[in-house]
Amino acid sequence: MPDLPQHKPVLAGAAYSGISGAGIRLEALPEGHLLHVLGTIEPAALATELAKAGFTSSSIRKAGFRQWFVAGDEPLSPAGLNALAAALAGKAFVIDQSHGRVRIGISGRSSRVLLSKGTAVDLDPAVFAEGSSVMTMIGHISVQIARTGDDSFELTVLHSFAESLWDELKHMATSAEKDSGA
């Protein structure tokens, strides 16, 4: 009997082991979990329900009108998803996007320079503060950019575009380091 297929992260292997240069760090983040929440629940109430369902280290990112992504590094358990769906019943719907999207981390003093090469979003901290997120395009690829720190960002992309985005970011990282004088 043949072996069952094993899950392999999209950005696995030596080609995606991360890039560290002067001023930029590019890394494939754990596939963990990504939930799409749609409904009338407000972010503070959603955070409360997430904590009750055991998603204490997950982050909430605005994804559109009355829509949020809930992202975290831990794998999703069916029991956790069921508990959250039950807690949100009548207020919001939860859709598991964990296998359909990939997260990429970008950090370092040149991270904004890198991202400015691919998107028109103003990433200045005065405009796009920590915790902010936006759906945008990098080249022809739709991504969500979330600011996770002063010089750190997380990009969420559809699974099938992850490798193309990675290659584009590698190219932009080389150019960004030259432009920043690193």
Score class of each variant (00 low, 15 high):
W68I: 08
L38N: 09
L50N: 00
R61A: 03
P75D: 09
A89L: 10
L26C: 03
K170P: 05
I41W: 08
V37Q: 01
A71V: 09
L115V: 06
L169Q: 09
R101Y: 11
A126D: 12
A12P: 01
L81C: 09
K117S: 01
F128P: 13
G80I: 05
E177K: 05
E27Q: 15
M135L: 14
S164Q: 12
G181I: 03
G139I: 04
L29H: 08
S160I: 02
W68D: 03
H171I: 15
E42K: 07
F153M: 13
F153N: 14
T56E: 05
L114A: 01
V102T: 13
M135A: 12
D122T: 00
G131K: 12
K178L: 15
G108N: 00
G80A: 14
G39N: 10
D150T: 10
V94Q: 04
A85F: 02
V121N: 06
E31N: 14
K117T: 00
Y16S: 05
I95T: 11
P75W: 03
L169G: 02
M172N: 05
S175E: 11
Q6C: 04
G139S: 06
I41T: 09
A14G: 06
L76F: 08
G54I: 10
L38Y: 06
G21V: 14
G118H: 01
R25M: 10
S20D: 09
Q97V: 04
K62G: 03
T40L: 10
E27V: 06
R25Y: 02
P2H: 08
F69I: 10
S20H: 13
S17V: 09
S20I: 15
T48C: 03
S58D: 01
S58Y: 04
V37H: 00
L76N: 03
K52M: 13
E49A: 13
F69H: 12
L11Y: 10
A85H: 11
V94M: 05
E154S: 14
F65A: 10
K91N: 07
E74I: 09
D150S: 11
E49H: 13
H36S: 08
G131D: 05
V121Y: 11
A44N: 08
S132G: 15
L114V: 02
L4E: 06
K8R: 10
R109G: 13
K91E: 02
H7F: 15
S77T: 15
M135F: 05
A182K: 11
K91D: 02
I24P: 02
V70H: 03
E163M: 05
I106V: 15
V127Q: 15
A83S: 15
A146Y: 09
G139K: 09
E177I: 13
G13I: 02
S111D: 03
I60G: 00
T136H: 05
G13M: 07
A92V: 06
E177Y: 12
V157F: 10
L158H: 04
I24F: 07
L46C: 08
G131H: 09
A14R: 12
T156Y: 04
V127H: 12
F93N: 07
A12V: 02
L155H: 07
D96H: 11
E74N: 14
G64E: 05
F128I: 07
T174F: 13
P2I: 06
I145M: 02
I104A: 02
S17C: 11
L46W: 11
E27L: 11
P43I: 09
S57C: 07
A47S: 13
V143K: 10
L88C: 06
L84T: 10
I41R: 14
